[in-house]
């Protein structure tokens, strides 16, 4: 039992997908790029979503977006629109689609796809500059991390 529990914890840390999660290749976008169904069937943790958005090694969303609620974390970029109030004018489904693969909503967007594992030109192994081991990359964010980010974005009501 202990071993099983440990393996589960390690899988969690490594960010591996769970069987119940919608796999990156199975995402169902509607014609506007939104994703109706939760990727995990579990509620997102907004607090964790905030951490992911500010963390350089995770979403690093503030590299491009200014978010007043995250102003304790330096530094906020200007490449994308400021996100204050986005939870008021975008639905959960729209936000899920944008975070998973923004190019389905905004054609040709510079915003990276955070739940995509193949179809890249010269994919690398993270930020090492080296070739990856397999021909599929782990998604930048796990299914649950996407849900957490969406939950946080929905808290951004005042813009």
């Amino acid at each position: 039992m202990r071993l099983t529990a440990m393996t589960a914890t390690m899988a969690l840390v490594a960010g591996a997908a769970f069987a119940a999660d919608v796999a990156p290749g199975d995402l169902q976008f509607d014609e506007y790029g939104a994703i109706e169904e939760s990727l995990t069937g579990m509620a997102g943790d907004a607090e964790n979503g905030a951490k992911i958005m500010a963390s350089k090694s995770k979403g690093n969303c503030i590299a491009c977006h200014e978010v007043t609620a995250l102003q304790d974390a330096p530094f906020h970029g200007e490449v994308g629109p400021m996100l204050d109030g986005v939870g008021g004018y975008r639905s959960a489904a729209e936000l899920r689609g944008i975070v998973a693969n923004a190019k389905m909503t905004f054609e040709g967007s510079v915003m990276p796809a955070f739940y995509k594992t193949k179809g890249f030109i010269r994919p690398g192994d993270g930020y090492t500059g080296k070739a990856p081991a397999g021909d599929e990359l782990p998604p930048i964010l796990t299914a649950q991390e996407i849900e957490d980010v969406v939950a946080f974005l929905l808290t951004l009501q005042d813009g």
């Binding site: 350089k56 503030i62 200007e78 030109i121 994919p123």
Partner: peptide, 22 residues
């Protein structure tokens, strides 16, 4: 290129003058 699917132009033509993080 890469998992972020960014070209030189995305940063240095479309976004020069903007901050990307610091």
């Amino acid at each position: 290129t890469g998992q972020l699917e960014l070209s030189c132009a995305n940063c240095h033509e479309d976004n020069y003058g903007n901050y990307i993080r610091a």
